[in-house]
Structures are given as C-alpha cells and as structure tokens.
Design a protein around this nucleic acid. Structure first.
Lengths: 249, 249
DNA sequence: ATAAAATATGCCGTTTTGTGCATTTTTAAA
DNA sequence: TTTAAAAATGCACAAAACGGCATATTTTAT
C-alpha cells in the first residue's frame, strides 16, 4: 500500500467520523502504529486534520466549503430550488434569504444568467461568488452565529433602502390561517423588512412545514405572492392555500 | 513497445485502479524500473497523474476530499497570525481585513476571547462565526468575486461610521519609502477607509512582499503603527522600516 | 545513404525515504 | 500522585529515487 493511499484513507475516516484513534487505523490498515503516527503528523503539518493525543480530529465545519454538512431533506429542497429558478430572468434584481433551501437556489442559478442579487446570508453570498454573471450585494450587520446571517437594526435599515423584484424567503413555520411565524423575534423583524423591500415575495418551503405555527408572526399568508414546495401544485395538502391569492408552483 | 503506448498503458492502469506501483508496471510491461520511473515523472509533469513514492495515483483520487485550496506560504502566515493575536485583549474592538493572512488570524482567535470584530471579508466572517465569544459585524456592500470582500461606495461609507481599536490589514505591496501600494484602485479606496476607521493599524505581511511596490498608493509607511512579518524583529531585512515610527513584531 | 545529433533505455553506485522496533520521555486520566 | 497509554527519539534495514554513464534507437541534416 502506498503512503499516499494510506493518508487518503486516514483523511476519509476523519471526514466521516470527525475523529479517529490511531490504534484503530493502524489495525484496519495493518501497519505499525508508528507509521500512522507519522502520517497523521504530516497531515497535521499540511493542515488537513488536527492531531490530538491518541488520534486525529477533523478540522471541522469551519472550512468554507459549504457542501460537506449534511442537509436535511436535500432532495426536496433541490426540487424547490429548481422551480424557483424558473422565475429568474436576465436583469432581475432579487433578494435571497438564508437557510438551506435558499442556499440551494443560489447554487442552482444558471451560469449565464445576469442578475443582481441581494442577500444577508454568508453562505449564500459565498455560493454566489462562484457565479461570474451575478452581481452580489451583501446587506451588512451583526452576524448571527447559528444562522450565519446579518441581523439587527443595521441590517433592517439597509433593507429599508432597497426594492427588489423578487425576494425568495424561507420560514420557520407556515399555516394557511396563521400565516408565517418564527421561533425568534429578531428574525421576524428582519423578514418583515425583507418583505417590505420586495415587489413580490416568493416563499420556499418544504411540505413538512405546512400547517405549523409558532410564537412570533412574520406576515399574513396573503403577503406571499408565490409559494413553492416540492409537491406538485395540485397536491391536496396545498388546498388550504389556494383560497388565498397565492400562486403555487 | 513505443514510449507513447507505454505511457498510455500506465495512465489506463491509474485510471482503472486509482493507483499503481512502479514495480508492477515495470514487470508487466517488461521494461526497467528506471524507464517507468521516467515515464511517470513525465506524466506527472504533464499533470496526467500524481507521482508518489513507489508509484503513482490518479488525480481524481485525492481532490474529492482535499477541500482546502493550498494556501501559499501557510506556515509563515500562521506565524504572523500568532504574533498578531497577542495584541488582542478582552473587550477589544477590531477590524480584520481580507486575504489569507488575515483569515489565519481569524482562525487563530482564542475561543475564550471576548471581542467585537468588524470585517468585509466573507471567508473571515464565516470563520468567525465559529468563535462563540466573538461579536461579528459584517460591513455590507457589493461583493468582489475574486477577493470575496465587500467593495464600493457602500462599504466605504459604512466604514466611515465606525472607529475600532485595531485594524489588521494586509497589502499587495509594501516598501519602506513608497509605503503600501496596490494593483487595484478600488482596493486602495477601501483600505484608506479602513485605516481611517482605526485608532491603530497593524500590517500583516510576509517578508517576501517587503520592498515591493505597485501603481496605486494606499498610505505612507508611517500610517502603520505595527508591522508583523514572520521574521524575528531583529532581522536585518526589517532595518529600513525601523527608522520610521513603527513597532515591529 | 550516411554521419551526426538527439532521444530513449538500461545499469550501477549513492543518497534519500519509508517503515518497524526498542527505549525514553511526555501526556492524560483515575 | 500514580500509572498506563501515547509520543518522541534513535537506530537499522529495505525499498525507492537520483545522477552519471554506456549503449541502443530514432531523427535530422547533409
């Protein structure tokens, strides 16, 4: 076995389990513990992993490659993003919210589409930098650690100064009678500002969230112009939304 | 057997099994190990495969999980970041610039340090979200695709409204008589705003950049309060900077 | 067609690298 | 603090890489 393969195997193991024991690796690869120790030492020097007493751990989720974290219900979200991307035309000025569904939309923007895109999500902005024809404008503000988005008065104020054609937003909870609701009050303030900054608001939402609600209200359901789920529009789960003046994709 | 077909055979083997041993190939093709070694060396130079001790491996084999784009002179930059981080105290309000050196500084901020940190670099902001005690504020603006930072009037205006204790900046070029210079005019405007927004400016700079210059000027060298390179302060390469009123770490 | 030049190949001695083992030092957990 | 596991260190051996050289093959120029 080549040294390179061995090191690659070690990296894979670390990626997969986030941590490994040197003794385990040595046994599965059938080489001496010294060799593994040296390998891990090298990999550490190359900043491919971090060596700790007795083993090695992954450098973690801090690396800017956003894809490696497992996204819940990714297939559904991709389907939603595909539908959403059909709304985009050259010259559009849009806003893309945070959240994994919106991130998928950002990822799915065609390479040749020439649009201007506002966002307050760091991952979305990172993703959009790879699209050469997209003008990206980041709404600054204090960064929320868990959601990785700008929040706070500054962000809201900045939003008040723009008006986009479409804003693509996610939501924590949605219900046909109670509208869009969130767990977090700050987020609600932000989303209100986003909706106000858009001519038309498009809600991206997996069907699992339908008919759920929480404490703080973002807006009534008819503040939404278009709603996109992974379901076909004629699905009966969407019936309660059809009474309102919402386009369903 | 022609050299061409031999090399093609090697490539096929590598494609097929992701790896190959020089001794195996030499035996199956019935040529000397030296010849194979030379072949593989050539193929490596042509980026058709990667030569490793004892064999060769497919290019695709490593790239899939080697997420980190290799940073040039990473060790030097880590050393610089380490020195820079000693300037940080609880309660500090700082600015961190873009660039790989500054990104290393962001990565190196201790977990228990409680500071407020402004930045206009997406990667830096992403990195900082993993530090639970750091308040991160992103300066919004249009995002430059290649540098992954906010640029333009909006970013500059936002910078004009803050004043931080320290700003840690990089530079394209630095010279003791010509000061800090850049290739890009927009970047210069931005850096000027950054320097104006800081009580003290700390320059992070690998020694390789010393005594280099370019078209557009960011500031005189004595606009810099502290300069950090990977070299020990007494290194003679830094002599020309010691005349000026600069602290060298 | 022939000589000269360039390239390719194999061989050999030296240097470098990779690996395992034994011993000492360090580390982390009870 | 004690103690067992892990890391570092030094060493030995084998495999591989390297450089120089001789020979063979192909290409080029005359």
């Amino acid at each position: 076995m080549l040294k390179e393969e061995r090191q690659q195997t070690i990296l894979n193991e670390v990626e997969l389990h986030n941590r490994v024991l040197l003794t385990d690796i040595a046994e599965t690869l059938d080489v001496s513990i010294d060799t593994i120790r040296r390998d891990v030492k090298e990999l550490d020097a190359e900043h491919k992993l971090r060596k700790v007493h007795g083993g090695a751990i992954s450098l973690g989720f801090t690396t800017n490659s956003t894809r490696n974290t497992n996204i819940y219900a990714l297939d559904e979200k991709i389907k939603i993003a595909e539908k959403a991307s059909t709304l985009l035309k050259d010259g559009s000025v849009i806003f893309i919210d945070g959240g994994t569904t919106c991130l998928e939309l950002a990822r799915m923007i065609p390479e040749n589409l020439e649009i201007t895109c506002f966002t307050l999500s760091l991952p979305v902005a990172m993703q959009l930098t790879s699209k050469s024809k997209v003008t990206v404008i980041f709404i600054g503000g204090q960064i929320s650690k868990d959601a990785q988005i700008s929040i706070g008065a500054n962000a809201i104020h900045n939003l008040s100064e723009i008006k986009v054609d479409y804003s693509f937003i996610g939501t924590g909870y949605v219900d046909s009678t109670y509208g869009l609701t969130e767990f977090d009050w700050d987020i609600v303030q932000l989303k209100k500002a986003v909706i106000k900054a858009a001519k038309k608001t498009v809600l991206l939402c997996i069907s699992e969230k339908l008919n759920s609600q929480h404490r703080y209200k973002t807006c009534d359901i008819n503040a939404i112009n278009t709603m996109i789920t992974e379901l076909p529009p004629e699905n009966q789960l969407l019936n309660s939304f059809k009474n309102h003046d919402i386009r369903i994709l």
